[in-house]
Amino acid sequence: MTAPTASPAVCPRCSDEAVRTVAHSPVPDVWEVLQCARCLYMWRTTEPARRTSPGAYPERFRMTAEDIATALEVPAVPPLAAR
């Protein structure tokens, strides 16, 4: 059985340190679901390292604070209609 990882200090995707636990396994102590408060990346502690470990996380899927700030709005928020 894979031991649950303690909450890591950083998000595998954006390296932010504000990581919270959003769910625990119904069978106690098997896994946790964690989430980065900045980029909202969510992962289960039993997933492969390529999804959970900052060192193994693929470069092409990483996200920076600037990526988040400049991300396109889809759909764009429309102007308020005149009342």
Partner: peptide, 19 residues
């Protein structure tokens, strides 16, 4: 309301941002 309490959520592809 807690989606995790009702649904066994999981990820599909490596680069997906979540479930």
């Amino acid at each position: 309301v807690d989606l995790f309490a009702v649904l066994p959520l999981f990820r599909l592809n490596d680069g997906d941002g979540g479930f």
